[in-house]
Simulated scan of single mutants.
Amino acid sequence: MNIAERHQQIINKLQKEGKVNVTDLCADLDVSSVTIRKDLKLLEDKGLLFRTHGGATLHNPYTIDRSVNEKEKIQSSEKMRIGSTAAKLLEPNDSVLIASGTTVLALAKSIQPKSNLTVMTSALNVALELIKHPEIEVFQLGGLLRRSSSSVTGTYAESVLPDFSFSKLFLGVDGIDLEFGLTTTNVTEAHLNRQMIMASQKTIVLADSTKFGKRGFGRICGFDDIDQIITDRGVSDYVVRTLEGMGIKVTIV
């Protein structure tokens, strides 16, 4: 196999699976890791892929912080379907925790309570959406308000959480990387999210398919801490199989 054929094989695998790793490519193409890394460098120089730790991906894996108003317009119909599906998981007299993000805001907009519901949230826009319903008791976490996300972070918000127990956490993220885990662009928000996971019996991630293969600056957790992910049909079969192999329930809307 010459270099052009090898490069085509790498691109074909990338298009099929969304990402590749050096070890698998070495086995598939019967060449050394040094050769594969040189191939990936050449393909990256041509703008055909992005190298990552131990492999490569078709899309830029690093996400940037955007304002909530900007993010709300991205994948808006997918987010509303995800939010509507998540709302069906609420039970009578439930006590849940809702983190921040435009996908969990879609959840808040989808909730039509038929019985009492208790919600604690770090997101001001989520609280303002839920306070419209007399059946919902809303607890707003306090702390430093981030303008870009309309949510609070910091030690004050974190200090409250150990005094409560929630049946479910609905978590929004900026990135889901099969090697690195779940991330957000803000490290203090990532730390608050970890405390939320510890306070909840079940963690449900709401993320549209554009979040897969991306990494934010702050790591929230690995996949051992996640029970379910609700996403849209844009996620690849390879990613779904991998997540289900980890014991995570994947719901596609």
Rank of each mutant, 00 (worst) to 15 (best):
Y156P: 04
A56Y: 08
N69F: 11
S236G: 08
L43F: 07
N186C: 04
A106V: 11
L40R: 06
R215K: 10
T184Q: 02
Q75M: 12
Q140K: 10
L14R: 01
V31E: 00
A4F: 03
D177M: 02
L42A: 01
S165I: 07
L89R: 02
T184V: 10
N93E: 07
L107R: 01
L48D: 14
M196N: 01
K41Y: 02
D174Y: 14
D94Y: 02
L145C: 08
T102H: 05
T155Q: 00
F170I: 01
P113E: 05
T63I: 06
P92L: 11
K19Y: 14
K109H: 14
G245S: 11
S200Y: 00
D208G: 05
A157S: 15
V34Y: 03
V138P: 14
E135M: 09
Q75G: 11
D225A: 14
T57L: 09
S67T: 13
V240T: 07
K202I: 08
F217S: 15
S200G: 08
L124G: 06
Y62N: 06
R233C: 12
G172C: 09
N60H: 10
D28G: 00
F180W: 13
S209W: 14
K41E: 13
A27M: 05
H7L: 15
G142K: 03
R147T: 07
L192E: 00
A27T: 00
H59D: 04
T210G: 06
M246I: 00
S165L: 11
D24S: 02
D237I: 15
S167Q: 15
S149Q: 05
N125W: 04
M246N: 03
R194I: 02
V96M: 06
T35F: 04
N93Y: 08
N193K: 04
T185W: 08
I10Y: 15
S149D: 09
Y238N: 09
F50A: 12
L145F: 09
K16D: 13
N186L: 12
Q140E: 15
S151I: 05
Q15M: 08
Q75H: 12
E91N: 07
N69M: 07
D174L: 06
E158V: 05
R66E: 14
K249R: 03
N2T: 09
I136D: 05
R241Q: 01
T183G: 02
G222V: 10
